[in-house]
């Protein structure tokens, strides 16, 4: 009987010790889990902040990019439209110039262009070229007739395709002075374009 109770006591003691150990272990595991949870929460929160921050930055970049490229595309389309309008103005101006009457002003202009061309080439033997409609005008111009008395000056019989003005060449064709209205328009195109664009935009 006594040996049984001693055994029982020992079993109880072992059981209670085991129970206390297990409770301690459970407690410590619980605390450990809580600590892990707490630290995970901090790291998850910081990860969350980081991801949100990166996403915000990316969204800002995207927004800037979309706004930037949209504005640029709109501006570029406007440039193309303006250019088309400018080209149309040039074409119409050239047609208008071709059909304009050869009045006194034009005669004076031809005389000046011829004078400029002859002075620029400055040779003793020169050829003058002009359009078919301007041939008579050149022959009658003072610049042509005056020079013809001093040097050998020939009016080419082969007309050139030009709105107006003259082309002067040395007889050996090594020098050419292009005083046609076409070449002048081409040369002054950037300046004329600016004026046309300003008018189109209602500036100045």
């Amino acid at each position: 009987m006594s040996s049984n109770s001693a055994l029982e006591r020992t079993v109880n003691k072992v059981l209670s010790q085991k129970e206390s150990d297990m409770i301690t272990q459970i407690d410590s595991a619980y605390h450990e889990s809580m600590n892990n949870l707490e630290s995970s929460r901090t790291s998850i929160e910081s990860d969350y902040e980081r991801i949100i921050d990166a996403a915000r930055k990316q969204a800002d970049n995207l927004k800037r990019q979309v706004i930037g490229s949209t504005r640029l595309n709109a501006r570029n389309k406007q440039l193309l439209l303006v250019e088309a309008a400018v080209n149309e103005v040039f074409e119409k101006a050239k047609v208008a110039l071709r059909s304009v009457g050869k009045d006194e002003n034009y005669k004076q202009l031809m005389n000046r262009l011829l004078e400029e061309g002859l002075s620029a080439i400055g040779k003793d033997d020169m050829i003058v070229e002009c359009s078919k409609t301007d041939m008579e005008l050149v022959k009658k111009s003072t610049a042509f007739s005056d020079r013809q008395k001093k040097i050998k000056l020939t009016l080419s019989e082969k007309p050139i395709d030009a709105i107006g003005g003259v082309r002067v060449r040395s007889a050996d064709l090594s020098l050419t002075y292009d005083g046609t209205l076409d070449s002048r328009i081409e040369r002054l195109k950037p300046l004329i374009r600016k004026s046309i664009v300003q008018m189109l935009r209602g500036e100045g």
């Binding site: 400029e116 090594s174 020098l175 050419t176 002075y177 292009d178 002048r184 040369r187 950037p190 300046l191």
Partner: peptide, 12 residues
């Protein structure tokens, strides 16, 4: 931008 037109040379 100058209005004057330059001379064209062919003797290279």
């Amino acid at each position: 931008m100058s209005e004057t037109v330059g001379i064209e040379y062919t003797k290279v």
